[in-house]
Amino acid sequence: MSDNSPTSGKQLVTMTVNGEQTEVAIEPRRVLLDVLRHDVGLTGSKKVCEMGDCGACTVHLDGAPVYSCLVLGIECAGKKVDTIEGLAKGNQLDPIQQAFIDHDAFQCGFCTSGQIMSLKALFEDSPKPSDEQIVTAVSGNLCRCGAYQNIVKAAQAVRDEAKPETRNDD
């Protein structure tokens, strides 16, 4: 039973999670999503399909959006991981979060973290995206509740707030 102990085969991995140095002892086969949720205690990223089809597990790895169900925890050694929990600065919500509240851009909320993280990556790249860019950015994020229309409205509001004169309603 010795190789059956929970500590066998683990590697020590250090990553920067939401700006904090975080050390976890993990088996090489474990995916980032589970490490974040189970070991680090950040449960905002959701597990839905575990095959890269739904986007509910989206986090940023060194600034780029990834499906954390498809990334191994050990691949993140020395890297920057940002999750939904790190988005608000203290009491200050990120404008995308605020826009989601203002526009009712969720129902059950299970896809919401992923939607927001996908949009966050978009806005970091291009602060005033076109409607098409917005839709493309979240086209990998499934919402079984169908909150899509308000998600687009929320993203448009963030864009238009950032630069009102570029309003480009359909």
């Binding site: 950040l42 905002g44 999750t83 939904i84 988005l87 509240i101 909320g109 299970f110 973290s113």
Partner: peptide, 13 residues
């Protein structure tokens, strides 16, 4: 709203 947009809403999972 707030807990669902900040990742703090707790589901069974």
């Amino acid at each position: 709203s707030r807990i669902k947009t900040t990742g703090k809403a707790i589901y069974t999972l």
